[in-house]
Amino acid sequence: MKKTWLILILLYTQIGISQDSNLSVMYSAQLKEMDTTFLKNKSEYIKTHLLSQFESKKEIINEIDFELICDDDGYYLSYIQPIPTDDFFKYQLTGAISRVFDANYILADKTEEVAILAGFESAVKMDRSVEMNSIIWEKAKMHKEIIGYNCQMYIGKLVNDSSAHKGHYPITAWVTDALQYSCGPTPFAILEGVILELENDDSIVTATCINRTKKSIPEYKSEFRLLSYPEYITHMEEWSKKNMPRRN
């Protein structure tokens, strides 16, 4: 009888442990100063407008908490939705998140080697799929510590410009192999380890805390039309040309 009870207790604790077996990494993001060389030949109106919008995006992104859930087969990056105050805030939030991740959320399936970049309700309503191996990661010599974990530096370059938003690459990643997961806040987290920091010309995303979690990765439910990234580029270029002709 005692044995049966012991087995039952053991099973119960095992279930408890397995429920907490996924990894949760919280991140904060910052926008870097905007490179304004492209504004040189633009009108005063555009310069003033874009610079003021950019300042408000910087403030918004500082307030957002991003969460990455990792399991053995994939990972999911999302953020805690702030309560929208008005349409202006909604569009600025979309702009800020898109500037860093080019997606409302990222859902990666490592077995299929495909990641989904979700579209935005208040912007381009299209989901995009990317091949996770369409990046080349080169190991660099540098190491640094992030929230107590020793991290190795890698530089990621796109195999070709149409595999993702080319403006976000090359990208620097700081990766720890101490957590026995392979994930990160990018559609291209195929390195052995967890990416605790990502940096490109526009932004820096840094891990703030790590926990075990019962949360699981949601299944992909297509809200919008799903295109591959090269198809998306072609579609948007053609759409813009047809519906929003450039004035000069």
Binding site: D35, T94, G95, R99, D102, F120, A123, H165, G167
Partner: peptide, 8 residues
């Protein structure tokens, strides 16, 4: 032109 995404 400044390298923003289409959503931005």
């Amino acid at each position: 032109d400044g390298g923003a995404t289409w959503s931005e």
